[in-house]
Simulated scan of single mutants.
Amino acid sequence: MKILVTGGAGFIGSNLVDELINLHYEVVVMDDLTTGKVENLNSKAKFYKMDICDEDVLKIFENEKFDIVYHMAAQINVQKSIKDPIYDANVNVIGTINILEACRKNNVKKIIYSSTAAVYGNPDYLGIDEKHHKQPISFYGLSKLSPEYYISIYSKLYNLDYTILRYSNVYGIRDDKNGEGGVISIFLDRIINGKSIKIFGDGSATRDYIYVEDVVDANINSMKYGNREIFNIGTGKHTSVLELFKIIRNIENKDINVVFEDERPEDIKHSYFEINKSLSMLNWNPKFSLEQGLRKTVEYYRRN
């Protein structure tokens, strides 16, 4: 079976590529290296340096004849989406349509799309399940939600199978303080470089933090399970920023200075998933506790 991973040089994508190769699949990576890194590429994967909006995407599909497409390439920075919504929409919406057209024209069996908790906006209730209303509060959230509807309609019109995975806050090895991961990678980068930690607000804001290997497992299972369904991929547990900081401080076993700054108005106060649908229909269960995942992440940062 031949599999394409768009964004396969990025944080989550490269971890997925490694596991697919470990499972002996034939893997092709498409990445323009805007945020992905050459050093993340698995040498056993065939690599195309290409923007997903490029018209030559179709030629690659015609030549390679993919069975499965993991669509992970995206513009993932919330602040950048607000500053440059046209670029954000071009990558996340037009880029996805370009991939879908290539899937349609080349008889791809299934597309597995990486979405985000940002599609929900400010939650009406916790934990957030898949039926919760979708009302993004950033252009990023909107540009990740729109492709979900395109995928559903392509499926109905052209019988393209799909699974959509909405991630909570993913962290782990190869996370980048300038990339996808957010607060954990920023904390660790500042700690390693001897800088104080910045916390916006009083540190009581909560999130659902999930280790990247658990996200990879959900993607692997999506090849077989969850056809034409949408799933929340998180732990179903919530941790405050202050609690997160204390766990990292204990793992690092060092005194770390904390600076509290004004709460950012665009930040959602509390968010965590309800994951019963994923547990029952994806044959999947997150394996790593937050402390276990953080210890593996800290070890990676120390080595690198």
Results as ranks from 00 to 15, higher is better:
Thr116Tyr: 08
Tyr120Thr: 02
Val78Leu: 13
Ser114Arg: 03
Asp84Lys: 14
Tyr113Ile: 07
Pro123Lys: 03
Tyr113Leu: 04
Asn122Gly: 02
Asn98Cys: 07
Glu64Lys: 06
Glu101Asp: 11
Lys80His: 10
Asn63Met: 15
Asn122Ala: 11
Ser115Tyr: 05
Lys80Trp: 04
Ile99Gln: 03
Glu55Phe: 12
Ala89Arg: 06
Ala118Asn: 09
Lys83Pro: 00
Asn77Thr: 12
Gln75Ser: 15
Lys49Leu: 11
Tyr120Pro: 00
Asn98Lys: 15
Ile68Phe: 14
Glu101Gln: 14
Ile68Tyr: 14
Val57Ser: 05
Asn122Cys: 04
Asn106Val: 10
Ile112Cys: 01
Asn63Lys: 15
Ala74Glu: 06
Leu58Cys: 03
Lys49Ala: 11
Phe66Tyr: 12
Ile52Asn: 01
Tyr120Phe: 15
Ile111Met: 13
Lys110Thr: 06
Tyr125Cys: 01
Gly121Phe: 07
Val91Asp: 03
Asp56Glu: 10
Ile94Asp: 00
Asn92His: 09
Pro85Ser: 08
Val69Thr: 09
Met50Lys: 12
Tyr87Val: 07
Lys80Ile: 08
Met72Val: 04
Tyr120Ser: 00
Lys80Cys: 00
Ile97Glu: 02
Cys103Phe: 01
Lys83Arg: 15
Cys53Trp: 00
Asp124Asn: 14
Ser81Ile: 10
Gln79Thr: 14
Cys53Ala: 02
Ala74Pro: 00
Leu126Thr: 08
Phe66His: 08
Ser81Asp: 02
Arg104Ile: 15
Asn107Phe: 14
Lys83Phe: 11
Gln79Met: 13
Cys53Met: 05
Asp124Gly: 14
Lys65Cys: 07
Ile76Tyr: 09
Phe47Glu: 10
Asn107Lys: 15
Cys103Asp: 01
Gln75Ile: 02
Val91His: 05
Asn90His: 01
Arg104Leu: 13
Ala74Gln: 11
Asp84Ser: 14
Gln75Phe: 06
Lys65Ser: 12
Thr116Gly: 05
Ala117Asn: 06
Asp56Phe: 09
Gln79Ser: 13
Asn92Lys: 07
Glu101Phe: 03
Tyr70Trp: 10
Asp51Ser: 13
Thr96Trp: 03
Asp124Leu: 15
Glu55Asp: 14
Tyr70Gln: 08
Met72Gln: 09
Tyr125Gln: 04
Tyr70Asn: 06
Ala73Arg: 12
Ile82Tyr: 10
Ala74Leu: 08
Ile82Leu: 12
Arg104Ala: 14
Ile68Cys: 07
Tyr70Phe: 15
Glu55Cys: 07
Lys110Leu: 10
Lys83Trp: 07
Ala118Ser: 15
Asn63Leu: 15
Ala89Gly: 04
Gly95Trp: 06
Asn92Leu: 03
Leu126Gln: 08
Ser115Asp: 01
Asp84Thr: 10
Ile97Asp: 02
Tyr113Met: 06
Ala73Cys: 03
Asn106Ser: 13
Val69Lys: 13
Lys109Ser: 09
Ala118Thr: 12
Ala73Gly: 06
Asn90Gln: 09
Asp54Ile: 15
Lys83Tyr: 10
Ile86Tyr: 04
Cys103Thr: 02
Ala102Asn: 06
Lys109Gly: 02
Lys65Asn: 14
Ala118Tyr: 05
Tyr87Asn: 13
Asp56Val: 03
Cys53Phe: 00
Asp56Ile: 05
Lys109Ala: 04
Arg104Cys: 11
Lys80Phe: 09
Ile94Cys: 03
Asn107Trp: 09
Asn122Thr: 14
Glu62Val: 07
Ile52Arg: 04
Tyr113Cys: 04
Met50Phe: 03
Tyr48Asn: 08
Ile99His: 04
Lys105Arg: 15
Lys49Gly: 03
Tyr70Glu: 02
Asn122Asp: 09
